[in-house]
């Protein structure tokens, strides 16, 4: 691999590096505050490798959730991956031995890099995707593990650090809002979830929310088409 091409790909991942270190450290510290040390954070970063699901898992761990509710909550928070996979079907079709890892490592951020960027000169698309996937994974593992170690060393109070997750989603929500004029899906997402929160209560509202969102989106698509027809 040419050094120049490697550096170009590395430069593409810099925003993700900063974000993953920041959010990873936040995760490691949060885990530490709940009594789970660096080794736990390392293992979760290496083998689960999913930001929002890992944060969710912290509350499942401390709340002593059942395995079924764990499976369902993680499934519903990560259901969005299904759609990332659908867009990458073609690109990863002939990835050979790299394919399982490429699919495993397809996070929100890696997905956005490999779909938006073109590989640098002298590097194939697949090599680029693989390199970005590995680098991002390393940043996340280092961040999470570092947070678990720092949690012990830093005398500052970290009450409120869990807000990084809320801030992440508000940031993406705002970015999406600015990037499109079609605000219906975003409003349906907020509206249906608030409604289900009020109706079903905060323990089980996520699953009915997903169902309601999918239903309203499907219906509104059909009526939208009928209007234009």
């Amino acid at each position: 691999m040419k050094k120049k091409a490697f550096l170009a790909a590395f430069r593409d991942t810099l925003p993700v590096m900063t974000g993953y270190l920041f959010l990873g450290i936040g995760f490691g510290i949060l885990m530490y505050e709940k009594g789970y040390g660096a080794l736990w954070s390392f293992a979760m970063a290496a083998f689960m490798y999913a930001g929002s699901a890992q944060y969710l898992t912290v509350s499942l761990l401390t709340g002593g959730a059942s395995l079924i509710s764990t499976a369902l909550s993680v499934l519903f928070i990560n259901a969005r991956h299904l759609f990332y996979g659908i867009t990458m079907l073609e690109s990863y079709r002939d990835a050979g031995s790299k394919k399982p890892y490429l699919i495993f490592a397809l996070t929100d951020e890696t997905y956005s890099l490999v779909t938006q960027n073109t590989p640098p000169e002298g590097m194939s698309k697949l090599s680029y995707c693989f390199l970005v996937s590995v680098l991002d994974h390393i940043y996340w593992v280092v961040g999470c593990t570092l947070g678990g170690l720092l949690g012990k060393a830093l005398p500052i109070s970290f009450e409120g650090i869990e807000f990084v997750l809320t801030a992440l989603f508000v940031t993406i929500f705002t970015e999406q809002w600015l990037s499109t004029k079609e605000h219906r899906p975003a409003l349906i997402g907020v509206g249906a979830t608030v409604l289900c929160l009020l109706v079903f209560g905060k323990d089980i509202f996520l699953i009915p929310s997903m169902a309601l969102i999918a239903l309203i989106l499907t219906i509104s698509r059909k009526t939208g088409r009928r209007k234009t027809a």
Partner: peptide, 15 residues
């Protein structure tokens, strides 16, 4: 759904 769900899901995650 693949196109519009990300927008709805982010709103859901904020809530």
């Amino acid at each position: 759904l693949g196109k519009v769900l990300p927008f709805a899901i982010m709103g859901m995650l904020v809530v």
